[in-house]
Amino acid sequence: MENFETLRMLRVGQQAVIKKITVGGEMGRRIRDMGIVPGTVFTVMGRAPLKDPVEIKLKGYNLTLRNNEADHILVQTEEG
């Protein structure tokens, strides 16, 4: 299995596909409730002034999440 990056490591403008959510409980549930599930393609739209939270666009809508939440989302970039 290749090494995936986490969402936190992506640059603004990068596109990637979600591979795995590595957290359960309330946070894992909430992440999935918002449509962040394996197989979904998304783009990093921007970061707030202090680089946190991050904004992503997926399936036509925009979400924002904190970096400590992004840490639990493993992704694969298009080129990788």
Binding site: E26, M27, R30, I31, M34, I36, P53, E55, Y61, N62, L63, T64, L65, R66, E69
Partner: peptide, 10 residues
């Protein structure tokens, strides 16, 4: 804190 993950509605 509750998770922050939040929609930025159009």
């Amino acid at each position: 804190t509750s998770p922050f993950v939040m929609e930025l509605p159009p």
